[in-house]
């Protein structure tokens, strides 16, 4: 617990100080608002990913599912209008998440296989629907979702904040959260205690899917078009934010609050590296190293548990 209480906050402060020395613009209100706006999508996917990880799973399909929903919701929006399009996107997220959940909880596929299969299928369907081309001609009002402001705060960041608070309360204050932790900690014990394990697993995957759906719709609004490749890398980023925050894969240990710190750390790192002109290619390499390092350090700290 010392990592999420002391270590990670210290790293965040250190990064913020370093970047503000290297580039004075880092602390400008404009840039911080940018960090918030950019981190909003990651917040949504990371919250979902964290809950799935706490239940003992993980989702590799996030990125491709975002692409699929972006394309499908855009098509519906062009055909039938703004609200039905957004609703379709979110509902699709729930459906896809629940499908992943059924594969894991009912068919007993390892999450790795289930979500890898979903990744491939989602990518295929997205390319079939779009023909590989972006879908434009979206309603003009739709832009507000990604670019709008509420009391000078970026709307996506406001959505992310609400989701963070909601997920935190759900995981800490409700029976649902308690059972998710129990299933991740010892599925047999949960079963023996009378917890309907399959139902709760499918529910947590569906909830994660809902958040992925929201993320896809917001991202599509920011891109002002539907793209099959819109969510590229989102699975890794959401897993990275989760494990950097200190939520362990497959042990039911960690929290939404930890992941908030993970998202902040990732946001500052990405933004800071951009400000000091480190190319995205190097950032990808850094991300790989950070993920492997975070999991290694976590295992090392909890050896013998």
């Amino acid at each position: 617990m010392t990592w999420s209480r002391v270590g990670l906050p210290a790293v965040i402060v250190l990064m913020a100080l370093t970047f503000s020395v290297l580039n004075p613009n880092f602390y400008s209100a404009l840039n911080l608002r940018n960090v918030a706006r950019q981190s909003a999508i990651l917040s949504l996917t990371a919250c979902g990913q964290t809950m799935v990880v706490l239940s003992g799973g993980f989702d590799l399909s996030v990125g491709m599912v975002i692409g699929l929903i972006s394309v499908a919701a855009s098509l519906v929006m062009v055909e039938t209008g703004l609200w039905t399009g957004m609703l379709a996107g979110v509902l699709m997220g729930v459906g896809i998440g629940a499908s992943n959940g059924v594969m894991v909880a009912k068919m007993h596929l390892p999450p790795f296989i289930a979500t890898l299969a979903m990744l491939s299928a989602a990518r295929g369907v997205a390319l079939i629907l779009s023909g590989g081309l972006p879908i434009t001609d979206l309603p003009r009002d739709f832009r507000w979702l990604g670019a709008g402001q509420v009391l000078t705060l970026p709307l996506p960041a406001v959505i992310a904040a609400i989701v963070f608070v909601g997920c935190h309360l759900l995981m800490k204050k409700t029976r649902f959260g308690r059972y998710v932790y129990a299933i991740g900690g010892n599925e047999e014990a949960a079963t023996y205690a009378g917890v309907p394990v399959a139902r709760y697993k499918i529910s947590v995957w569906a909830l994660h899917g809902l958040l992925v759906g929201v993320a896809a719709v917001v991202l599509t609004s920011r891109a002002v078009s539907g793209h099959a490749t819109l969510g590229e890398g989102a699975e890794l980023e959401s897993i990275a934010a989760t494990v950097i925050g200190g939520t362990a894969l497959g042990r039911g240990r960690g929290s939404i609050a930890n992941t908030l710190l993970g998202v902040v750390a990732m946001g500052i790192l990405t933004n800071g590296l951009n400000l000091v002109n480190v190319s995205t290619y190097y950032q990808m390499v850094a991300m790989g190293v950070i993920i492997a390092g975070a999991v290694y350090v976590d295992q090392w700290r909890h050896r013998g548990d």
């Binding site: 029976r175 308690r178 932790y181 129990a182 991740g184 900690g185 010892n186 047999e188 014990a189 949960a190 079963t191 023996y192 205690a193 009378g194 917890v195 042990r251 039911g252 240990r253 548990d305």
Partner: peptide, 24 residues
Amino acid sequence: IYQNLALAPNLDVVGNVFLGRERT
């Protein structure tokens, strides 16, 4: 009381004692 599948190691004592019939 089973040998291995009795407790969820990540939950605290209270969480384990009340697992499956939480007071709300």
